[in-house]
């Protein structure tokens, strides 16, 4: 079975590394800011994620909780973005089977995430 695609491997490696590092950096900055403001927020509030439609407004206010949430969402999106990149890359190479598998996989991920109203 020939599976190796050196160019795609490099691309996916960069996507995974960059996405996870940006996500974790934002989450860490948000945690530091959140703890710094700990005197003003109660513990249960520190735990809660904003609904997605309220996240942009909270980010514009530089709300630390929103920054943590954005970081974690970026982290969670990273493997899904890698699957999307793989699907497009295989389609570009007319390697339809793995491209189709990746597309179906993305669909399952999206149904899992948004099927219950994330």
């Amino acid at each position: 079975m020939q599976f190796r695609d050196l160019e795609l491997d490099e691309l996916l490696s960069r996507v995974l590394r960059l996405g996870s590092m940006i996500g974790l950096f934002l989450a860490f900055v948000g945690v530091v800011l959140l703890v710094w403001q700990a005197g003003r927020v109660s513990n249960p509030e520190m735990a809660m994620a904003y609904p997605l439609n309220k996240l942009p407004g909270a980010l514009l206010r530089c709300d630390p909780r929103a920054i943590v949430e954005l970081g974690l969402l970026l982290l969670l999106a990273t493997p899904a973005v890698a699957v999307l990149v793989a699907s497009c890359a295989y389609a570009q190479r007319k390697n339809w089977r793995p491209s189709f598998m990746a597309a179906v996989l993305l669909l399952i991920l999206l149904l899992g995430a948004f099927g219950r109203g994330l």
Partner: peptide
């Protein structure tokens, strides 16, 4: 993400599988 980025760079990951 960290570990698989390293494995992909070493071309050990079987992506279609």
């Amino acid at each position: 993400c960290g570990a698989s980025a390293n494995y992909l760079r070493q071309h050990l990951t079987n992506m279609p599988l």
